[in-house]
Amino acid sequence: MTMFNVPDMTCGHCEATVTKAIQGVDQSATVKADLAANKIEVASTAGSEAILAALDEAGYPSSVAA
């Protein structure tokens, strides 16, 4: 699992959009969101760079959480 910071994810609609973007890269990806912390935990076979690119394209610039 990889944790990502998604600062602009603030509501359920944002969460759905972020999940859809990630599943566009990997249909079997599992996404667990923490809206209060603006983080998502992703279990995916896609690499972090592909996920970051998909999130950026969806309008949610992100980074890998430390």
Results as ranks from 00 to 15, higher is better:
Lys39Trp: 02
Ala33Gly: 11
Ile22Cys: 03
Ala16Cys: 09
Thr10Val: 12
Ala43His: 01
Ala33Met: 07
Val42Asp: 05
Thr30Trp: 03
Val42Met: 01
Ala46Lys: 12
Ser48Ala: 14
Lys32Pro: 00
Ser28Gln: 10
Asp34Ile: 02
Asp26Val: 13
Thr45Ile: 11
Ala16Pro: 08
Glu49Lys: 08
Asn38Lys: 15
Cys14Arg: 05
Leu52Asp: 01
Ala21Glu: 04
Thr45Trp: 01
Ala46Thr: 05
Ala53Ser: 09
Ile51Arg: 00
Gly12Met: 07
Thr45Arg: 11
Cys11Leu: 10
Glu15Asp: 15
Ala53Met: 01
Ala37Gly: 10
Ala54Cys: 07
Thr10Phe: 12
Ala53Pro: 00
Leu52Trp: 00
Ala46Ser: 12
Glu41Met: 07
Thr19Phe: 08
Leu35Ala: 10
His13Pro: 09
Asp26Glu: 12
Ala46Arg: 06
Leu55Phe: 02
Asp34Arg: 00
Thr17Asp: 02
Thr10Asp: 15
Lys20Tyr: 07
Ala37Leu: 13
Ala53Asn: 10
Gly12Val: 03
Val42His: 04
Gln23His: 07
Ala50Ser: 14
Lys39Asp: 03
Val18Cys: 08
Lys20Asn: 11
Ala16Asn: 14
Leu55Cys: 01
Asp26Ser: 13
Ala54Ser: 03
Asp34Lys: 05
Asp34Tyr: 06
Ser48Arg: 03
Ile51Ala: 02
Lys39Glu: 14
Ala43Asp: 04
Leu52His: 05
Gly12Leu: 06
Asn38Cys: 13
Glu49Gly: 01
Ala46His: 04
Val42Cys: 03
Thr17Glu: 00
Gly47Asn: 10
Ile22Pro: 00
His13Lys: 11
Thr30Glu: 06
Thr19Gln: 09
Asp34Leu: 08
Lys32Asp: 13
Asn38Gln: 15
Ser48Asp: 15
Lys39Leu: 11
Gly47Val: 03
Val25Glu: 06
Glu41Gly: 07
Leu55Met: 02
Ala16Asp: 14
Ala46Leu: 06
Ile22Tyr: 00
Ala16Leu: 13
Ala53Glu: 11
Ile51Thr: 00
Glu41Thr: 10
Ser48Gln: 13
Cys14Lys: 09
Gly24Phe: 11
Ile22His: 03
Ser44Lys: 04
Ala33Gln: 07
Cys14Gln: 05
Leu52Arg: 05
Val25Gly: 10
Ala29Arg: 09
Ala54Asn: 04
Asn38Leu: 04
Ser28Leu: 06
Glu41Cys: 01
Glu15Thr: 15
Gln23Val: 08
Ile22Asn: 01
Thr45Gly: 10
Lys32Ser: 10
Glu15Lys: 15
Ser44Tyr: 01
Leu52Ala: 02
Ala16Ile: 12
Ser48Cys: 01
Ala29Cys: 09
Ile22Val: 15
Ala37Trp: 07
Asp56Ser: 08
Glu49Ile: 06
Lys32Thr: 13
Lys39Val: 07
Ala50Met: 06
Gln27Thr: 13
Asp34Asn: 15
Gly47Gln: 09
Gly24Asp: 10
Asp56Trp: 01
Lys20Leu: 09
Thr19Arg: 15
Ala36Phe: 04
Ala37Met: 12
Val31Arg: 01
Lys32Glu: 13
Ala33Cys: 07
Ser44Asp: 05
Gln27His: 09
Ala33Thr: 12
